[in-house]
């Protein structure tokens, strides 16, 4: 049985004079991976931040477990959701294990040290993301793919009900991209909800149960990948021509090969 965990109701966000989001409705359900796609500047990050309660909305509201998120206790909010920042920075050369431990913070009082149960969660998260062997390394010595998986482990260690990830795989090689997506799929399969901003449309189509397509702050469509990704939409939203190929499992592969004529006119 699926259950709605988080719901954006008619959310608008304005930054300065720019309208980043325009009355977007979107909900996260247990067991589902929702992909957030759209060109650069279409409002993916703003929507994720608004849904994580990190961004004030100028219209509408976000609801977490039947409560307006602005009225939620920040600790409860921290326990319920894990937010994976775009190019997440780590400011001190922390050892990997300590970094992943930080994920337990919403469960700890101000002066508490992580207890044995916390340690077990940290261990599990490290194993789940295949970073157990890195646990003694310093985060500054990791490669991009390793760091990304460690940051995901940090989120998983907090045992959130949902994960909000902002382009976590943009800088990764294909193998690491698949590894991260597999971890998220496992998380969803175990009853979690995931919303993830993506640029790689093939991966979005392969892993996401639903896709939400944004253009200049408007939610164009939210539906299954096969319904969202069509040649016509890719042309009108991204300004690209692409070949779409379906494999035997009805899974879509998107290969862009040219700009549309309108897009060519705009580019220098």
């Amino acid at each position: 049985m699926t259950e709605t965990l988080l719901e954006a109701r008619s959310v608008s966000v304005t930054m300065g004079s720019i309208q980043c989001l325009n009355r977007v409705d979107l909900s996260l359900k247990t067991g589902e991976i929702t992909g957030l796609i759209g060109p650069n500047g279409s409002g993916k990050s703003s929507l994720l931040k608004a849904m994580a309660g990190l961004q004030k909305t100028t219209h509408g509201s976000v609801w977490l477990a039947g409560k307006n998120i602005t009225h939620c206790d920040s600790r409860e909010r921290g326990k319920a959701m894990g937010y994976l920042e775009q190019n997440g920075d780590v400011h001190w050369p922390l050892p990997v294990k300590r970094l992943v431990e930080l994920g337990r913070i919403p469960h700890l009082q101000g002066w508490q040290s992580p207890c044995e149960q916390d340690q077990r969660r940290v261990e599990a998260a490290l194993k789940q993301t295949d970073t157990w062997h890195l646990r003694e390394r310093t985060v500054t010595t990791l490669s991009g793919g390793e760091k990304c998986r460690v940051l995901l482990a940090r989120v998983l260690a907090g045992e959130p009900k949902m994960i909000l990830a902002d382009e976590p795989i943009a800088a990764l090689d294909p193998a690491h991209q698949l590894m991260v997506m597999e971890s998220l799929r496992q998380f969803a399969a175990a009853g979690g909800a995931v919303i993830i901003a993506l640029h790689d449309l093939s991966i979005a189509a392969r892993y996401c149960d639903r896709l939400a397509l944004l253009k200049e702050g408007d939610l164009i469509i939210k539906a299954s990948p096969n319904d969202v990704i069509t040649e016509a939409r890719l042309a009108s939203v991204y300004g690209i021509k692409a070949t779409l190929r379906r494999d035997e499992n009805d899974c879509l592969t998107v290969t862009p090969y040219a700009l549309t004529d309108e897009a060519k006119l705009l580019s220098p």
């Binding site: 409860e76 921290g78 997440g88 780590v90 400011h91 930080l102 994920g103 101000g110 907090g158």
Partner: peptide
């Protein structure tokens, strides 16, 4: 200051992430 330890830990992941973990 002593009560700030946990929040400062969270801040080592940046302000957004710290905020997402419940730090004001």
């Amino acid at each position: 200051l002593i009560g700030c330890g946990q929040a400062l830990n969270a801040l080592s992941l940046g302000e957004q992430t710290a905020a997402s973990m419940g730090v004001n």
